[in-house]
Design a protein around this nucleic acid. Structure first.
Lengths: 99, 99
DNA sequence: TGCCTATATAGTCAGATGGCTAATAAGATG
DNA sequence: CATCTTATTAGCCATCTGACTATATAGGCA
């Protein structure tokens, strides 16, 4: 998810979706001055990262922010400031799973 | 900053620093099975992103998480879930029907 | 001072990323 | 059913990233 947000266009898409939910895919091409397939690729990354949800409206597909995903990231980032506690709070460092 | 966190090794470094502050640079080479210069590059990215702070301790340089940076990211991400209607300001209805 | 350890930089190369055009698939609408 | 619009996928190529080795720099300590 962080990797998905690490690209300026994708972060811009998220911001746009936050400011104006239910934005259709075709709208982004104009906003970011990118060709439609390029936007589609970025939207796919965001979709597969679970950061956005889709809904069909007529011939268009509207995107919105998946609030749960943002909470998930925020929670994970908050753990970065948590002090080390003597308990099973910390995760194993052998996590090799990719998203 | 998000771009800096978007790499598994760098996120792992941040997690390690959260679990064990004041970790010296040489320690990461062993933890992540990477050569020393590679770790140094990642630490440089984190440093330039303002995500970590450094402190010299003898011959070593110890890294710690910069809490303010995490707050900054969290705050920015929180804005992604904020609705575009912060007050009684009326704006065009967009026919949002729940699925 | 001189050495020795720890860290940072330079340079290089394979592989990933991100943009495009062209073609395909999905679905609405007459 | 035919057609048209919209979205996705495929393939291509320039650029960036991230790993490495080799080298340079910084600073403590005998």
């Amino acid at each position: 998810m962080l990797r998905a947000l690490g690209h300026p266009v994708r972060l811009g898409i998220m911001r746009r979706l936050a400011a104006e939910p239910e934005t259709c895919a075709c709208d982004f091409s104009d906003v970011f001055t990118l060709k439609q397939p390029t936007v589609s690729q970025h939207l796919k990354v965001l979709r597969e990262a679970g950061l956005v949800t889709t809904r069909r409206r007529g011939t268009q597909i509207c995107y919105s922010v998946q609030p749960g995903a943002i909470v998930e990231i925020t929670d994970m980032l908050g753990a970065l400031t948590a002090h080390p506690e003597p308990g099973p709070t910390h995760l194993p460092e052998t996590a090799r799973s990719s998203a």
